[in-house]
């Protein structure tokens, strides 16, 4: 009783390492995915080292430099490489600090949505019957609303702010994880290895989290990556609408909202924060695409 279940539940280290090596092999075949990975890593470094890299403090207002254009344009200077905004703050520094918010938002939202969705989906798929029916109807209700609208209304209820925006976005993204987990659990739960574990005396919690869950992870990882970029986009959209992070936070969406009235006078105030969002989201999506192809056995046959 002591030796056998251990062998069954823990594969030898070699197999797992080999699986990771295989995953990396297929992932690295995809040029876009590798570029996405490097850009994402660079962003993480920028976010972590923001106080070291940023040339100015993000909320420092230079009274002598309102709406200074980027350095290559007439009137610009290398003191403010990407120019300044309407109250004289250095845009490059704000963008560098903003990367912290975006990556933080993505990480927090995906963690909440992933953990919540996995637990809910496991319970629904494992128990079935009325538990499943009730849970899935609640998920349907959430999905019946357009996600940004529901998040907006939730933030209106909770009060504007970055934390509440993250909670709201996690809540509207979570049904996708629950549905995926449930479908995977239903496909796996009658397989022989699960029955074997059950016969060997594994309890419900062990069956759910140790036996079944590791075999449902592939689609969840892919969905997690795509949700990471969705969370960044939605949080920026809420910030843009004035319901997310509040000024003077250097969050990219909030920066865009503040810049809106200057769009026809100072293109750089509007262009750079959006470009930062686009590059970040694009890099993560490239990585997500690569992961999906690497994890999908159907595409591996060639």
């Amino acid at each position: 009783m002591t030796a056998t279940p251990d062998l069954a539940s823990k594969p030898p280290a070699g197999t797992r390492r080999q699986m990771l090596a295989e995953l990396w092999f297929y992932f690295s075949q995809n040029r876009g995915a590798v570029i996405g990975l490097w850009v994402t890593l660079a962003l993480v470094v920028v976010a972590l080292a923001a106080p070291l890299i940023a040339p100015h403090a993000p909320s420092m207002q230079y009274r002598d430099a309102f709406l200074v254009p980027p350095f290559w344009q007439e009137g610009g200077s290398t003191r403010f490489l990407l120019g300044t905004d309407a109250i004289g703050r250095d845009i490059l520094s704000r963008l560098i600090y903003g990367s912290r918010y975006s990556l933080f938002i993505g990480a927090v939202v995906v963690t909440i949505a992933l953990v919540g969705g996995i637990v809910i989906g496991l319970v629904a798929g494992f128990f079935g019957g009325w538990v499943d029916a009730v849970i899935m109807r609640v998920m349907d209700v959430i999905l019946a609303f357009p996600s940004l609208l529901l998040a907006l209304v939730l933030v209106a209820v909770l009060g504007p702010g970055l934390m509440n925006a993250m909670i709201a976005i996690a809540l509207v993204l979570q049904p996708h994880f629950a549905r995926l987990t449930r479908a995977a659990v239903m496909a796996e739960k009658n397989r022989e290895y699960v029955v074997a574990a059950q016969v060997a005396g594994a309890g419900r919690l062990r069956l759910m989290f140790r036996t079944i869950l590791p075999n449902c992870l592939a689609p969840l990882i892919v969905q997690g990556t795509l949700s990471f970029s969705n969370a960044i986009l939605d949080a920026a959209a809420l910030g843009f609408l004035g319901m997310g992070a509040q000024p003077p936070t250097p969050e990219w969406g909030t920066m865009l909202a503040e810049a809106r009235e200057f769009i026809l006078r100072a293109w750089w105030v509007v262009t750079f924060p959006g470009l930062a969002i686009l590059i970040t989201v694009l890099a993560i999506n490239l990585m997500g695409d690569g992961l999906r192809d690497a994890l999908d056995p159907k595409l591996k046959r060639s």
Binding site: F240, I263, V270, P273, N285
Partner: peptide, 25 residues
Amino acid sequence: MGTALIGYSMPIFWWGLLLIILFSG
């Protein structure tokens, strides 16, 4: 497909502002 991925990753509120700058401004 590269363009499609860019479109898919686009913060459309910013995209709208860019088009306004270019075509209206």
